[in-house]
Design a protein around this nucleic acid. Sequence first.
RNA 1: GCAGGGUUAGUGAAGCGGUCAAACACGGCAGACUGUAAAUCUGCUGGCUUAUGCCUUCGUAGGUUCGAAUCCUACACCCUGCA
Length: 402
Amino acid sequence: MTSFQFSVKSRLARPSLARTGIIRTPHGEIKTPAFIVVGTKASVKAMTPEQVSSVNAQAVLANAYHLYLQPGHKLIEKAGGLSKFMNWPGPTFTDSGGFQVLSLGSGYKKVIDMVGGESTEITKKTKTERKAFVDEDGVTFFSHLNGSRHRFTAELSMQIQHAIGADIIFAFDELTSLADPYDYQIESLKRTHDWALRSIEEFNRLRLANPTRPYQALFGVIQGAQYEDLRRMTSKFMAGLPVEGFGIGGAIEKKRLGQIVRWVTDELPEEKPKHLLGISEPDDIFEAIDNGIDTFDCVSPTRVGRNGSAYTYFGRQNIVASRFRDDFRPLIEECACYTCQNYTRAYLHHLLHAKELLGYTLMSIHNEYFIIKLVDDIRLSIENGSFNNLRAQWLKNYYKDK
RNA sequence: GCAGGGUUAGUGAAGCGGUCAAACACGGCAGACUGUAAAUCUGCUGGCUUAUGCCUUCGUAGGUUCGAAUCCUACACCCUGCA
């Protein structure tokens, strides 16, 4: 009965493409712009679903590759789908495994700067031995868990994501790195197009074969790295496909994030939702929303939190640093999150040094709350016309006094 | 009391005549982290106006040697066995 629907509620005057809206899914609504929390393995790391909810998260994004390996998509299907399995009643997304084509492939054991700093790749000192190999038809993965060999194709990614049963799923794509040459980007893009067509076909087949399943929406994925012609070309191509929304992915130069997003949103149909994959730095969020992005997801709040950094209005603060040892203030005085309401920097510093599990939880709660609150504030600001003010006020402080 | 083993940088622990300011681990300090191989990774970790340099270190005090954390002697403390 409930299917997928996206409606735009309000928008800013051009040239801004910022807008608010609502995505309706079988598991509930998402007010956009929205930050989607990442729960790769059907768990937002260190957080219970109640905590995820308390942080005002509207939806969770999991990963087809990880869940296929463990515990297996069939098991999740048997459990009644992702939402039920993980006890998250709200909307869910799954990524196709496309990211792992890079992270386990050419990017394996490398520090890949996904948003293009000065150096795009720094090879780690450990020996590199990739675990993913791309060809025209698909990707061969060697499990990071036990080395076993697996073959991903667009069809299998769809079967996995269909079984997992998230509300929004992504076509299988290849993520390239900024360091890949132009010729390779073209070659890869052809592959991603082919895989998108095959994803649609397989997805339609599965949908017809299982008419009683809750409705799932398929999003096409836009790649093209830092090249305007490629991003526009692939966007035009994807715009013509029968998909219900778009994921914008790939290595994106931070300096030109807004511009790159704009090339894409220029070419895509306005009435469909656009998800920017893997972005959550405050300045990037402003840029992206201004250029027409409706949803984001990112591992950063939880990962960075577990590793000791807290988001603040003055950038990320490394709470494990010795200067916080006897700092008895909350992470942010005015922050309404559970962590800031109840715990001090000194306590968090201690928990992180002692590797106490509670530390990871409290840091994750704060960081998720912080980023979600930012996007919520932006949503309000679009509705009441104060977007530019909010942005200016925010960015004035963020990279200062770090 | 006798016999044997031990004492190395914040901790644990390698080293057993020169290539030793001394492996490694932990800890400490700093940094990184953007569709999670990530409770991870990187760098530094005796001192010095940071250097293919100098100085002070390997229980304490002497000694052997061109040269000692490494060999010898004495002492101190610790452990094990026998009395």
